[in-house]
Design a protein around this nucleic acid. Structure first.
Length: 575
DNA sequence: GCCGTTTTCGGCCCGACTGTTTTCAGTCG
């Protein structure tokens, strides 16, 4: 069975958990945790790299030992180091770490003193009142353990970025109105435009006398106050979204914003750079000894370690510091760079609004062109178009374009890629269009080689412009299908066609690592809304966020082109 | 366990809040 990066990461995560409970060297634990993160965002399968004879120790953070363990896991499917740890500590013990308030030290005590190593056993022990007698535990800890287990806490709750935004915006507006508050900024993974966020980190600059902390915990959506102090508080909203609020002075704003934007790995790397220059960097500023030298702006913090400002979306310690040092940071694409949207539905299939309404809405969003790309007949649930209805829509678009001013509607289709790689509509109808977007909407669980082969065959059809939502994943609902994305990207390069970055908040597909891969291979990406209603053009912002996390610049994105430059690029794919 | 324009050994980011304590360890971000 093929071993994927996620499988290796899971082994290292478990090793890190067990080592922590064993009270191992925390830096050793960190090395494993680092490796988990590296594997999750590697893009290339480690197993494939090994098969090609690549040296994994070339990856920063992977040394001789971890490279050996990766090879062992790929070869044998298991890891002796983990087995050895599991002999000393029972399986399931590390699940207890997920409970809020329980860390490795407390879990260790629970295991050694009470022989508790499952959630059920812990629940019973807490109910029987055996927990509060343990050293370091007390009545409150026991109570919070009970509550956490009964509320099923510990199951990870992540929110899609667009969902988190719905809670974040009104909260930010509320905070802005509190007296003495000068500035409110969303930081954390939200600011880095991650696909999902676990919590909201909000930073405020406020006068000492401002009641912002009291008012924050009194916000009417707050269900539980986890902690409250003069500079930092944490609450859980009714929606279960956790929100951390941090209050700082203006001279610390940049340092705090940098610190609370993360990522953790990026921050550690920047602080290490500071250390090398004899500087201490914390959320209050940059210090030489006890002397404050920078911190009012993020720029000043970066400058203190010899770097230009790095966009939040790149802050993953995934090459951005090296690129910044070499003055090779990309000028990332912005929402304003988008000139059009090449994936739009109407009520002719499963959309809500008419052709005209969608065109007007796009124009209001500052776009100069859209492509209408309905589903094809095979997708009956979406009332996909057959040749006759598509011909009719093409005629309708021609007529509409004569009336429109300031926006042009292109004729397209989101055609199903059939099981064998053929397209769902004949060339005779496709050839009338400006572009053809191919999409997989069925048979998600083909083997890696069959799925890849199927898509490659589709891309080889005479009329094929772009591959829609290339991985097929739905965030939290459906895993990506198993394909060799590098092969697909290289085929797209050879064929001269494009990949979509679908901006729908549930999709955000192409994934960031593959955006970067496409950029390296020279394949253009189209950031498309997949709009089904007029409001959906707003989603383009999330697509842009994803593209920025994938290091894409304006020139790497197809639909930053003017219509005039776009047309020949589309024509090149159409026969 | 990783890493090296001070180092192949000896470092490894830094601080707030809570609960259990009588000055601090553990947890969290």
């Amino acid at each position: 069975m093929a071993v994927h990066n996620a499988d290796i990461a899971a082994v290292f995560d478990e090793i890190a958990n067990l080592l922590e409970i064993e009270d191992a060297n925390p830096f050793r634990v960190r090395a494993y945790r680092n490796a988990v993160r590296i594997l999750e965002s590697l893009g290339h399968e480690a197993s494939a790299m090994l098969a090609e004879g690549e040296d994994l120790t070339k990856i920063p953070g992977i040394g001789k030992d971890l490279a050996g363990k990766i090879a062992e896991i790929v070869d044998t499917g298991s890891c002796r180091a983990l087995k050895k740890l599991q002999k000393q500590l029972p399986p399931g013990l590390s699940d207890l770490l997920h409970l809020p308030g329980l860390g490795p030290k407390k879990v260790k005590v629970l295991y050694h003193d009470l022989d508790v190593h499952t959630l059920n056993q812990l629940h019973r022990a807490a109910r029987d009142g055996r927990v509060h007698e343990l050293p370091g535990f007390g009545a409150k800890t026991e109570q919070s353990i009970l509550e956490a287990i009964e509320a099923h806490a510990g199951e990870e709750h992540r929110f899609k970025l667009a969902t988190a935004a719905q809670y974040a915006r009104p909260l930010v507006a509320y905070l802005n109105k509190i007296s003495g508050v000068d500035q409110v900024e969303l930081a954390g993974s939200f600011r880095r435009a991650k696909e999902t966020v676990g919590d909201l980190d909000i930073l405020v600059v406020a006068k000492r006398s401002s009641p912002v902390m009291d008012r924050f915990v009194a916000y009417d959506e707050v269900k539980k106050v986890v902690s409250k102090g003069p500079t930092r508080s944490t609450v859980i909203l009714a929606s279960k979204l956790q929100v951390d609020l941090r209050k700082v002075e203006a001279k610390s704003f940049g340092a705090a914003l940098h610190y609370f934007t993360g990522s953790k790995a990026h921050n550690i790397a920047v602080r290490r750079l500071g250390q090398g220059r004899g500087l201490k960097i914390n959320e209050y500023g940059v210090f030489k000894g006890s002397k404050y030298v920078a911190g009012a702006t993020e720029e000043s913090v970066f400058k203190s370690v010899g770097l230009p400002w790095i966009p939040p979306e790149l802050r993953e310690n995934h090459g951005e510091i090296e690129a910044a040092t070499a003055k090779r940071l990309p000028e990332l694409v912005t929402l304003a760079d988008l000139k059009g949207d090449l994936h739009v539905h109407t009520k002719a299939t499963d959309g809500r609004h008419s052709l005209r309404e969608m065109a007007d809405a796009a124009k209001n969003h500052g776009l100069h062109y859209i492509a209408i790309t309905e589903h094809s007949r095979r997708l009956t649930v979406a009332h996909g178009l057959d040749p006759k209805h598509l011909h009719a829509q093409v005629d309708q678009i021609d007529r509409l374009n004569e009336q429109l001013d300031g926006i042009t509607v292109l004729k397209g289709i989101e055609v199903d890629i059939l099981d064998d790689g053929r397209l769902d509509l004949p060339d005779s109808v496709l050839q009338r269009l400006d572009l053809v977007i191919g999409a997989v909407h069925s048979k998600f669980n083909l083997s890696r080689s069959k799925q890849t082969e199927r898509i490659l065959r589709a891309m080889d059809q005479r009329y094929f412009t772009m591959l829609a939502h290339p991985s097929g994943r739905l965030i939290d609902r459906r895993e990506p299908y198993d394909v060799d994305m590098l092969k697909i990207i290289r085929a797209a390069k050879q064929r001269g066609c494009y990949l979509e970055l679908n901006a729908h908040p549930e999709r955000l597909d192409l994934l960031d690592v593959y955006c970067q891969m496409a950029k390296e291979e020279g394949v253009l990406i189209s950031i498309n809304s997949d709009a089904h209603r007029v409001d959906d053009f707003d989603n383009l912002r999330y697509g842009v966020g994803q593209a920025r996390r994938g290091w894409l610049a304006k020139d790497d994105v197809l639909n930053t082109r003017s219509l005039r430059s776009l047309r020949p690029l589309l024509r090149g794919t159409m026969g």
